[in-house]
Amino acid sequence: MRFQIYRYNPDVDSKPRMQYYDVAMEPTDRMLLDALVRIKVEDDTFSFRRSCREGVCGSDAMNINGKNGLACITKLAD
């Protein structure tokens, strides 16, 4: 699956930029958070907040395809 993510590294970037990632997903991956975790394994400069992974803490709130939501309960299929 291909993901387009808005990234910013203050040490290096003068302003934020879009970056593309291609990730091979497993059948057990259901939610956007699963994909983000896979991206981080390959590129560990990729940082984001996350905690409960069940939609109750609010840490992984982000703007997803134009709408605000929680990555851990946003289905990849959608």
């Binding site: 905690s51 803490c57 840490s59």
Partner: peptide, 11 residues
């Protein structure tokens, strides 16, 4: 490590 209301007690 996280904003206090994100602590796992919340779950």
């Amino acid at each position: 490590k996280v904003f206090p209301t994100r602590s796992h007690t919340v779950a």
